[in-house]
Computed example of a mutant assay.
Amino acid sequence: MRSKLLAFTIAFMMSGLLVQAQNVKMKKIFDGKSFRGWVEPDNNIWWKAENGVLSAKSGPERKGSILWTEKPYEDFIVQADFKFGEGTVDSGIFLRTDKQQIQIGISGSLKRDMTCSPYIPGKGYPVEAEGVKELLKHNDWNTMKVQAKGSVYTVWLNEQKVMTYTSDNAIEKGPIGLQLHPKNEMSISFRNIKVASL
């Protein structure tokens, strides 16, 4: 009886999280033409905002760059469309810090696509997202939704849930970042970037 009650409670809580992720009101944090609401890097040669698209491309020295939101967030959902560009695309969405990331593209360490999987320095990829190979479109736009609720990260790719991970070193509050990985020749584009605080 206890095991049935526990199973029901867990299922109820998980369904509640899913409903919450689907029903919250998302707010645009990219206006499609400027870096308003973002911390544009000094001497920016990497990021461009125009025609509804935020694009990133490696510079000649391949130093990489992170574009951070001005606003810090606690519990939140971030959603963005992304499209692979040229080269070896190694990007991701940082969650409150550059030590907690959801990967987009090729892992530099594993040399294979790890889109939607969490990368944690010192831990590598503690879990791997499921079903991504079948869902991911390499030549078209994809939609990634990431929920960060406390230390629990949940990821959807093209409306399908693909990963849940509980981090043991998540921080409570911080900005959201988009990554252009150093040491790579690459480009990537984002659009329809939205956030909801939970």
Rank of each mutant, 00 (worst) to 15 (best):
10 I>N: 08
19 V>N: 09
20 Q>S: 15
21 A>R: 09
23 N>S: 15
24 V>Q: 14
27 K>F: 02
29 I>R: 04
31 D>W: 05
32 G>T: 03
34 S>G: 07
34 S>F: 02
37 G>C: 05
38 W>F: 03
41 P>D: 00
43 N>M: 09
44 N>E: 07
49 A>L: 04
49 A>R: 06
49 A>T: 11
50 E>D: 10
51 N>W: 05
53 V>C: 00
56 A>G: 14
57 K>C: 08
58 S>D: 07
59 G>H: 02
60 P>G: 03
62 R>Y: 08
64 G>L: 06
67 L>V: 05
67 L>H: 02
74 E>L: 00
74 E>M: 09
78 V>C: 09
80 A>G: 05
80 A>N: 04
84 F>T: 00
85 G>S: 08
86 E>A: 13
86 E>S: 14
89 V>G: 01
91 S>V: 05
92 G>V: 06
93 I>S: 01
94 F>E: 10
94 F>D: 01
95 L>Y: 03
99 K>S: 12
104 I>S: 04
104 I>G: 04
107 S>D: 07
107 S>C: 05
110 L>F: 02
114 M>G: 00
117 S>M: 10
120 I>H: 08
121 P>Y: 10
122 G>P: 11
127 V>H: 07
132 V>C: 07
133 K>M: 02
135 L>A: 08
137 K>F: 08
139 N>E: 15
139 N>M: 05
140 D>Y: 03
140 D>A: 15
143 T>Q: 13
143 T>D: 06
145 K>E: 11
146 V>Y: 03
